[in-house]
Nucleic acid binder design. Structure first.
Lengths: 205, 205
DNA sequence: TCCGAGGCAGACCGGTCTGTACGCCTCGGT
DNA sequence: ACCGAGGCGTACAGACCGGTCTGCCTCGGA
């Protein structure tokens, strides 16, 4: 009863959410914009409600606390960013599982170029709140979901030890994101080259 | 005149600082402990002064603002962590430039195992404050110094394109740190293996 | 026509934040 | 013997935090 339980288990992505105008959707859309760009602690409840045009009572009617809203934001981020932007787009660009894996870094390259590049919210929240905080633990869980997508592609490609492959692959993804945050827009290319070597060493001998 | 200008340009590391007992040294030692473990925003000035046994007036006599103390902390972190812990220790463990490079990830392995593993303060501050904030910009600068150490070792080893080598290498370092924060203590081994491939492809053909 | 659910606006609470100010004390140099 | 620099403790200012609560209004179904 906290979050919208009538629309089904999956939160709508930001684009599909534009059509809706319910207060809970406006809150979530605003939270997505502010949290993904500026982090959690820098965005207060007062700013959230004023930016989404919602009263404070309405806010706390739908979300029992700010942390609950952050959890809903992370879930939305998993859908909008991980699934719709990265996995779906990479799968669209590649014809084989290996091509789809490497296309992840092509998508990263386009993403790094965007002027509103906001890094990875899961890493941000994890480092901002700490691994022991409930929000940090939730972020770790969403990061493991990303590895799950990579592992599934690795299994499709018939690569050796797909679980360890996904962990190494994820190191390249996270490292390139940090480098892009520092300003290295070519970080995706460097990571993609190392990713190629990783694939070669995980192919059946 | 803000920070100790009588002792020379370099701040003393935490171990060598234990002998000193000046208020400014106690403040810096406390800031190092608290900032490196819990980040910037989670540690307030009141906690800093009570933990270091210093009055608030004394604090602001030595540091004009909290941000100024954070800058001094980052400088100290560069000395204690980057130089003394990582670069010096890796150089001690390896006999050749290539061995010294790979030993970075051996040092990482030991570091990841520590119960008080606190991740990389430069990445933490960068993501916590944002790339546009002065503290974020300072963190980017200290991260580039790390790349400088790697690049110097790559030049010693006679590797091709040492600047690009260092950027790829740094991706592995940062990615493995994030993975270790998630709980993957073997991240250093995975990164080290990819680092070996990177060295091979940068050796003179 | 009525009535209650839900939305809006904003006051308010206790707590915390950075930063300032004031008073008292100790200690070292002249 | 003095006197000022610098340390300590603390109260305080002004802003903001998450969260609670009270009023008022609108709208849709019985």
């Amino acid at each position: 009863m906290t979050v919208n339980d009538a629309e089904g288990p999956t939160l709508l992505p930001a684009t599909a959410m534009a059509g809706r105008d319910e207060p809970v959707d406006r809150i979530l859309a605003t939270a997505y914009e502010l949290f993904s760009r500026r982090g959690i602690r820098d965005v207060g409840v007062n700013e959230l409600i004023s930016s989404s045009g919602v009263s404070k009572a309405t806010f706390y009617r739908h979300f029992p606390s700010k942390d609950a809203l952050v959890l809903a934001f992370l879930e939305l981020r998993d859908q909008v960013w991980t699934v719709d932007l990265i996995v779906a787009e990479a799968s669209r660009r590649g014809n084989t599982p290996e091509e789809r894996l490497l296309a992840v870094f092509d998508v990263f390259g386009d993403w790094f170029q965007r002027e509103d590049f906001e890094a990875c919210s899961f890493i941000n929240v994890l480092l901002e709140m700490g691994a022991g905080h409930p929000l940090g633990k939730a972020s770790i869980d969403y990061l493991s979901r990303i590895r799950g997508h990579i592992q599934a592609l690795a299994e499709e490609a018939g690569l050796d030890r797909p679980e360890e492959f996904a962990r190494s692959w994820h190191i390249l993804m996270k490292g390139s994101i940090i480098s892009a945050t520092e300003g290295d827009a070519l970080a995706s290319k460097r990571a993609q080259q190392m990713a190629r070597w990783l694939i070669e060493h995980h192919r059946g001998l």
